[in-house]
Amino acid sequence: MAADDDVKAKTDVNPERPARTRVVLGEAAARRRPADRAGTDLAEQTPIGEALVKGLMRAQLALALRLALVVVTGLGALPLLFAVAPGVGGVKLFGIYLPWLLLGLLSFPFLIGVGWAYVRWAERNEQDFVALIRRPEQ
């Protein structure tokens, strides 16, 4: 039942998107709070609240693992490649041997690019989660 709620909530997010940017006065937010059931679920550790946190954790972990896999295949496979196909190590690009170019220069922008993508997507996951908790009850 909790999982159903999670899935339904996720599909609800898109049509609700403009609501997230709404600016609410402190007074109005205080008036809304008793109706904020998801927030209460979260604070009181009900099964629904726990399922919501689990959903967020799963999304964040899946994102981190996927990007780690990108690094493992992109960088981690290089030693194996050089060992299996020694010819690759002898290729020259712009007068520099390929391994020097890949490791000494290109690996750093690659790592930064992966990190940038992670920060962007992780923040989006969190915004979705906040929108889910804060959504006005129907």
Binding site: A64, L67, A68, V71, L75, P79, P99, W100, L103, G104, S107, F108, L111, V114, G115, Y118, V119
Partner: peptide, 16 residues
């Protein structure tokens, strides 16, 4: 060259 790459990549693991 794996030393400098690893010293930098450690921060990516930390970030993720």
């Amino acid at each position: 060259l794996w030393y400098p790459v690893g010293f930098a990549a450690g921060y990516l693991a930390l970030l993720l």
